[in-house]
């Protein structure tokens, strides 16, 4: 009986002691790719493009994925012309003022990039024809609760409505940024609060009404004092913008061996990232 018992224990130890080793498979040969990211809207003051590189996981390349590619030629084509975007060393992006190169609803824009190392990539996107009209309105309330030392709570409720653009299937994004003012320098910054994507559900030309409720759990007194306003945007977004952001929101990496990973959308030929467009309207609500 003792023998049987120890044999059983031995077998179970063998059974559940899984074996780990290097995978014996041919891995795809991967090189660093250009990561191009640009969002263009007629409401922006600049046309901005970020350019970085990806770092292969299984091959050794000396790449820092946070570093901008500084020596590329970035050209934007559209409005029957083209413009080369200069590199802004402070912000580490390529950009040009929209006073020099306008972004117009309904137009197609193409961006090409090339580097002295021979890398190149390009992407094309079309700006939605219609923006959000003046029917866009909202009511916003927020409640700041001090629950005790180090425990604060900001509860913001927004009810908004706007008229859907008729005769087309639309994808929309609602976005709230909290405008913070430095009480000493009066510089402003924007803290991202929430964002939601939705489509018009074939409600052509109808008034769309939606509610958003959001919480900021560790919202402390200092932030509450500096929170000056809410910037509330509704964008009519194109499919590149919509697909990319949804994949980003749903992103789950390869940590869970049983879960399906999410592939980040890209419309960049020869690289990664996205060149996408939106056309929107903002309402600023002062607190």
């Amino acid at each position: 009986m003792n023998k049987l018992f120890f044999a059983s224990i031995g077998f179970f130890a063998l059974l559940f002691s899984s074996c780990e080793r290097d995978a014996d498979v041919d891995l795809p040969e991967t090189k660093p790719k250009l990561v191009l990211i640009g969002f263009i809207t007629p409401q922006d003051s600049f046309v901005t493009v970020s350019l970085k590189r990806s770092k292969p996981i299984f091959q050794a390349y000396d790449v820092n994925t946070n570093d901008a590619v500084t020596d590329a030629t970035v050209t934007v084509f559209g409005n029957n012309t083209s413009v080369v975007l200069p590199f802004d060393a402070t912000l580490q992006v390529y950009r040009i003022s929209t006073s020099q190169f306008q972004i117009l609803g309904g137009n197609e824009y193409r961006v090409t990039v090339s580097t002295p190392q021979g890398e190149s990539a390009e992407a094309t996107t079309v700006v939605p024809q219609n923006s959000i009209d003046a029917s866009y309105a909202l009511t916003l309330t927020d409640t700041f609760t001090n629950l005790g030392p180090g425990y604060f709570w900001l509860n913001t409720t927004v009810q908004y409505q706007f008229t859907d653009n008729a005769q087309e299937t639309n994808r929309y994004r609602f976005y709230i940024g909290l405008v913070l003012v430095d009480t000493l320098t009066f510089d402003t910054s924007i803290a991202r609060m929430t964002s939601e994507f939705f489509n018009d559900n074939n409600g052509n030309g109808q008034l769309l009404s939606r509610n958003v409720e959001l919480y900021w759990g560790n919202f402390d007194t200092n932030l509450n004092d500096s929170a000056y306003a809410y910037d509330c945007w509704v964008f009519n977004v194109n499919s590149d913008y919509d697909n990319y952001h949804k994949s980003l929101y749903n992103y789950s990496g390869g940590e869970d061996p049983f879960a399906e990973p999410t592939i980040i959308y890209s419309n960049v030929d020869g690289g990664l990232g996205v060149f996408a467009a939106a056309n929107g309207r903002k309402i600023r609500v002062i607190r």
Binding site: V35, S54, F235, G254
Partner: peptide, 27 residues
């Protein structure tokens, strides 16, 4: 589906390059 590379993606955080907030990239 196997991860092949890593990179820095960005969400569009609008408003940062409009009007007076010109010192913040909208990413």
């Amino acid at each position: 589906t196997l991860p092949l590379a890593e990179y820095t993606a960005a969400e569009h955080t609008p408003g940062s390059s409009t009007g007076q907030q010109t010192n913040i990239p909208n990413f």
